[in-house]
Nucleic acid binder design. Structure first.
Lengths: 345, 345
DNA sequence: TTGTATGCGTTATCAG
DNA sequence: CTGATAACGCATACAA
């Protein structure tokens, strides 16, 4: 086989064409060109076509600065995240992006890395760009102080609600998430001796989910059979806590793990000790992180916080606010249980 | 304890203050105000202070549209990704963000979802915002067609290089990554009978890494003892391939897995069959995905593509190009091996 | 239907 | 040291 000739890529022109260039090329005035391109007003079909062609030939794109300057609108919103690497900011960003892309709204992205000073700096930068709204995404559901700026531009807090109850926040219902898991174990998996391995205690998500689980169990006349222990969000903690649990001699037929990694560690130890999952012990996780849950040796039943939905809803509420119909207070997106082999045979 | 009074949050003013507002408040002319704020030229200290105070009182932020309109600069670049959820675009984005944040350059983020039509649409939107450069991030290292636009603005391709060899691309050295792993297994872990479980064959990363590994082994007078098989990037494939390998009766003391999930599945099966890792069999992964590798029952030796570094470098090269010193051709960021317990006792 | 004039908020030039 | 004034690219009210 002969080597094909290398493809030739088109020359790229130097300077951006302006509307004046287009007008000149089409032999019309500035305003005529302007109108023709936005097929407004009364313009003769021929001129319109002529202008269009000129614009195309010059590969004209309107200068949005100038447009914004006169219209007062930027069609741009700011998204301020705290950490892009984590498990939570990114899905929210994705959800928001999906909605805003449809709305032809551009996203200016900044990352405050959890530093309030950087947050302020970035907000100033965003405001300079005349953004029409802000979505603040935080990686935990712990309520956060409101953004520190004086302007009255629409703001939506995603995942972490604002401490100001009047602000528009959108987050998940941790208490209900706890209930979901407990109900599933009792009603679907028919468990009665349910143990618990917590995540990090300082997360309100941890205590709220626990509270929900306990409330649900109580309604079934049950309670958690193990000591309530918190640790870290890691597999290692899942393994350690499970070993302790087994050694304690407590009899249990299910374990609520507060995230997927913990569940994964837990299952590993259970299987190592010759216990069958779910026949002998059912295990649940949380977060529904597919890479952890779905393809595991025993796929893990988990609860999703629907962070992408939260991001999308945040974007929709922001768009509403920009259009003059603001929302107030905190909206809760329901969590969702995904049953898998770790609880149901 | 009594409930504390709810915190009071400051009123937010309605309209953005302009420089005229500031000038009026400070009793100076527009141009004086402008100069005073950019502590330029000869301005008396008192006036400067007066203007500053006025600006602060009105919480003035300059309108960057107007600024850009006159300066011709937007201090904004566009980042076009294909998928935010994946493992590769996001770290590159993070790396770029880190650099650009320092450079006081704003990021306009768009997501083409792998669709060329959307990519074109988004590029137009970006160009309207007079971005000064573009970083195109793709989730695979397979070379991609150049971005489809006619303007001559600096562009850097990150992770996936451009098919146009003249473009500025930055990616990782897959062949070398393959060598790294093989060398580690031979020289550090003293293995001689090395098996292989591939990822998805259509990825050049797969074939290039394999090629590198084979070349390195050949230099040690060795070769891969197993059949060369490709599959998917999943744990399940790792388990399946490992079972087959064990059943085939081939004798091996190491397995090169082409990503971390495969390695994880592989190790799971090996341990299940009573083999010790790494004493009986050493296992390597790839991607260095911490959530998979670090906290595993046996932490997994892995190779990082340093995607964050790639993103950072892309940003630096873009900044250079914007400053009039463009780079051309493809730059390779070396991969990096992280030895863990799966290969070294 | 088309063209002229004005203003959006800022910076830069130049005159006072 | 300070203040008019033009210019950036575009949209629009208004005049032709």
């Amino acid at each position: 086989m002969e080597a094909g000739a290398p493809p030739v890529y088109p020359e790229r022109s130097k300077r951006k064409a302006t509307l004046s260039d287009v007008a000149r090329a089409a032999n019309v005035s500035l305003s005529t060109a302007s109108k023709a391109l936005r097929n407004q007003e009364r313009i003769s079909p021929e001129t319109r076509e002529r202008v269009r062609k000129a614009a195309k030939d010059l590969s004209y794109t309107p200068n949005s600065f100038a447009q914004s300057l006169v219209s007062g609108r930027s069609h741009t919103i700011g998204i301020i995240t705290q950490d892009l690497q984590g498990r939570f900011c990114t899905p929210a960003l994705i959800g928001a992006e999906r909605i805003l892309g449809e709305e032809k709204t551009s996203i200016m992205l900044v990352n405050a890395h959890g530093r309030p000073d950087l947050e302020r700096t970035h907000i100033r930068a965003l405001l300079s760009h005349n953004i029409e709204g802000i979505i603040a995404i935080n990686p935990e559901t712990n309520p956060r102080p409101p953004l520190d700026f004086e302007l009255n531009i629409p703001t939506v807090y995603a995942y972490a609600p604002s401490l100001n109850p009047d602000d528009c926040s959108i987050t998940c219902d941790n208490v209900d998430a706890g209930r979901l898991v407990a109900r599933h174990l009792v009603e679907d998996a028919h468990r009665t001796r349910i143990a618990f391995i917590g995540g990090v205690e300082s997360f309100v998500a941890s205590t709220d989910r626990l509270e929900g689980a306990q409330a649900e169990l109580a309604e079934h006349g049950l309670s958690i059979v193990s000591p309530i222990r918190f640790g870290t969000w890691t597999e290692a903690w899942g393994r350690e806590a499970t070993l302790d649990l087994l050694d304690s001699g407590i009899s249990f037929d299910a374990v609520i793990c507060q995230n997927d990694q913990i569940a994964r560690g837990c299952i590993h130890v259970l299987m190592q000790r010759g216990l069958r999952v779910p026949q002998d012990v059912a295990v649940t996780g949380h977060d529904d992180w597919d890479i952890i849950c779905v393809d595991a040796p025993v796929p893990i039943t988990s609860v999703s916080n629907e962070v992408e939905v939260i991001g999308a809803k945040a974007a929709m509420m922001l768009v509403d606010a920009i259009n003059g119909e603001p929302h107030h207070g905190t909206t809760y997106v329901p969590c969702k249980l995904y049953p898998r082999a770790s609880t149901i045979g």
